[in-house]
Design a protein around this nucleic acid. Structure first.
Length: 108
DNA sequence: GAAATGACCACGA
DNA sequence: GTCGTGGCCATTT
């Protein structure tokens, strides 16, 4: 158990068709200002995990990616499109529409 | 134990 | 609203 696991819990709670920013997840994980830790967690997460990492994006409403990722950027976008999310020419999405509104339940 | 890494955010312009 | 810089902190090696 560690800060890491908390992040997974949050990401798992992201409903389908919605997306959350790192800052949002970090805040929910009680890690306000430590968004980098969230990024690190998703960086270590595997696609085979139960974590919908593709629903986590940066504050700009865009998909972030790692330089050493297996072209996951393309995959992630496809997954989000399957969720019903559409991207504009800039490859961004409408956060006003798709941004997940987290619940206030800190714990189960 | 210390240095390096990391998918970022807040802030100022 | 975007872009550039600083800094936060945990995880990894």
């Amino acid at each position: 158990m560690s800060t890491y696991d908390i992040i997974y819990q949050i990401v798992r709670q992201i409903p389908k068709g919605k997306v959350a920013t790192y800052g949002q997840v970090a805040d929910l994980a009680n890690l306000y200002g430590k968004a980098r830790v969230v990024g690190y967690a998703l960086y270590r997460v595997d696609m085979v995990s139960d974590i919908p990492w593709h629903r986590v994006i940066n504050a700009k409403g865009e998909i972030s990616q790692s330089p050493s990722r297996y072209g996951g950027d393309n995959l992630q976008r496809s997954l989000l499109e399957q969720e019903g999310i559409k991207f504009n020419t800039e490859g961004k999405m409408n956060l006003r529409e798709y941004l997940w509104q987290p619940s206030l339940n800190v714990d189960d």
